[in-house]
């Protein structure tokens, strides 16, 4: 899941300061799940913006709408009517959603209200952690199902650095040492031999080193 969190209110206010009619658009996918841009967060932001604007003596007209998914053109089309009545669109989706809105509504400023963070999973309720870096060439099969690229702070591919202690990364006690996790898991699987093999320098082209990526499924294209 893509995770995101709301930008500081101050920054959002700054970005919408010159508009009178603002359409706030949420997304019912990932950002809803990570409590950043679902219907509820849209409501909270609208309320907060409204109050801030009132306080500043510059009331604005705010419209709330949450799409099923902001990164699909058909859903984004639904907004046409509302967009007409707005001076700017404030998107509470991830960067994909923001861009889809911008692509579809060319003449309207589209402003992001979220910072898109990473692809992650829920560690426990209310806590999400990075799990995948989208490198395009998965090595999880040899690293015991734990990704060293996304989860080692130094992206080490061949074992832990010298800063690993008590299972934690040198950068913070809050961060698990990915290689400790990998090692423990390999041990549990009886596959420590996988560790012994050196992993070659990675080809970063599938990770975007080869420019913006796309996937084409011929059978599904129209």
């Amino acid at each position: 899941m893509i995770t995101a969190e709301r930008k500081p209110l101050e920054e959002i206010l700054q970005s919408v300061s010159s508009f009178d009619r603002i359409l706030i658009v949420g997304c019912n996918e990932c950002v809803t799940v990570c409590a950043a841009g679902g219907r509820k967060e849209v409501g909270l932001l609208a309320s907060a913006l409204n109050m801030s604007m009132l306080k500043a003596g510059r009331p604005v007209q705010l419209t709330e709408h949450t799409l099923e998914r902001q990164c699909d053109p058909e859903y984004v089309d639904e907004l046409a009517q509302l967009v007409t009545g707005a001076d700017a669109i404030l998107s509470m989706a991830c960067g994909c959603g923001v861009q889809e809105l911008a692509r579809r509504y060319r003449d309207k400023p589209v402003l992001p209200a979220l910072n898109t963070k990473f692809m992650g999973a829920a560690e426990r309720p209310g806590v999400w952690a990075e799990r995948c870096a989208g490198c395009g060439n998965c090595v999880l099969g040899v690293t015991g199902g734990i990704c060293p690229i996304a989860r080692c702070s130094k992206r080490l591919m061949n074992g832990p650095c010298g800063g690993s202690g008590n299972g934690k990364c040198e950068i913070s006690d809050e961060v698990d040492c990915a290689w400790q996790l990998i090692w423990d898991r390999l041990k549990a699987l009886g596959k420590t031999d996988l560790y012994e093999q050196n992993m070659d320098a990675k080809d970063w082209r599938p990770a975007g080193g080869g420019g913006p990526r796309r996937i084409v499924r011929e059978d599904l294209t129209e």
Partner: peptide, 11 residues
């Protein structure tokens, strides 16, 4: 009591 309710009251 939703966070939204508290905020809306102030709003």
């Amino acid at each position: 009591v939703d966070a939204l309710h508290m905020l809306r009251a102030f709003e």
